[in-house]
Design a protein around this nucleic acid. Structure first.
Length: 287
DNA sequence: AACTACTCCTGGAGGC
DNA sequence: TGCCTCCAGGAGTAGT
């Protein structure tokens, strides 16, 4: 699923091809994906120019002319593809689609933007969990505040001290807390597992039980893992399966395979309803 | 405030 | 082969 690194990579790829383009026509085939504040609707997008592309947590924030903002969350299986006038792919990102989805549009293409240079931006989503919100620019701060996102993990606002404070009253497993967007904005299931593996901390440890040294290691691990993924443009695990010819992810999706660090077999269990992978040798159960 | 259970969806895997 | 059941999961909501 698209987490912070995938959304950031998508933003960087898409910005050069999309910013400056004007939307000429919009086709919304799955209305439930699209939310708009009163007085706005999907047709409001027609003849609006894309002025900028930003990211907050896992949200893609598209600034438009006439002081409008279109916010996109790809959730589990959303994908954006920008196709040039000749059918060539200009930029794409998000969840890969099955083989039948390589020809666009297809049955899971729910939203299509026809742009002024004859390029087309497609939003596809097999499981239909993606959401888009159209609002006036004065509303975006309120919209983001309501989400109560924690700090951006790759920015200076994410500090060990602040991180420890956010863990201190949580008795649930640290894995569950890492997925809470109010603690860190943008971490999802794969990078939560990878961060805990990197830090050598067991996913079932109660968050508040981590000592300052462990919090510091986990803080550094989250930054290291996300920074690596953003820089390398690492593809996430498609449909929950390990990519055997890649070193990364080191533990997520690799149950039964040897740990890259110690050779013990990677274990799997459900933690807080999420498939969770760890090395029982490297990742200590007690602090 | 913290936590849990439930919901939304489809495609792929496994059982028989 | 084909039908059935189960599983994957981000985040919003309701209930404890």
């Amino acid at each position: 699923m698209p987490e912070l690194p995938e959304v950031e990579s998508l933003r960087r790829d898409l910005a050069p091809t999309l910013v400056g383009r004007t939307i000429r026509q919009v086709e919304l085939r799955l209305p439930k994906l699209f939310k708009a504040e009163p007085g706005l609707d999907v047709d409001t997008l027609v003849d609006k120019q894309v002025r900028g592309l930003e990211r907050r947590a896992k949200l893609l924030v598209m600034r438009l002319s006439d002081d409008l903002v279109l916010v996109t969350h790809l959730r589990l299986t959303g994908q954006l593809v920008h196709v040039g006038p000749g059918g060539e792919s200009l930029a794409h990102g998000g969840h890969p689609v099955p083989a039948w989805g390589t020809e666009l549009p297809h049955k899971s293409t729910h939203l299509t933007f026809y742009l002024d240079d004859r390029s087309i931006l497609y939003l596809t989503d097999i499981r239909q969990f993606s959401r888009l919100w159209l609002m006036r620019s004065e509303e975006i701060d309120h919209f983001l505040a309501a989400a109560k996102f924690g700090p951006e993990p790759l920015e200076d606002a994410f500090t060990p001290v602040g991180f420890e404070a956010r863990l201190s009253r949580r008795g649930v497993p640290i894995k569950t807390v890492l997925l809470d967007q109010r603690v860190i904005g943008g971490v999802g299931n794969i990078y939560a597992d990878e961060s805990l593996w990197e830090a050598g901390i067991h996913p079932l440890r109660p968050a508040a039980s981590l000592n300052p040294d462990e919090v510091g290691r986990l803080h550094a691990a989250v930054r290291k893992v996300l920074d690596y993924a953003v820089r390398e443009g690492v593809a996430f695990v498609p449909m929950g399966k390990a990519i055997s010819d890649r070193a990364f992810p080191y533990c997520h999706g690799r149950q039964g395979s040897p740990c890259a660090r110690c050779g013990s077999l990677i274990e799997k269990a459900r933690v807080g309803g999420r498939g969770t992978y760890w090395c029982a040798t490297c990742q200590t159960a007690a602090g």
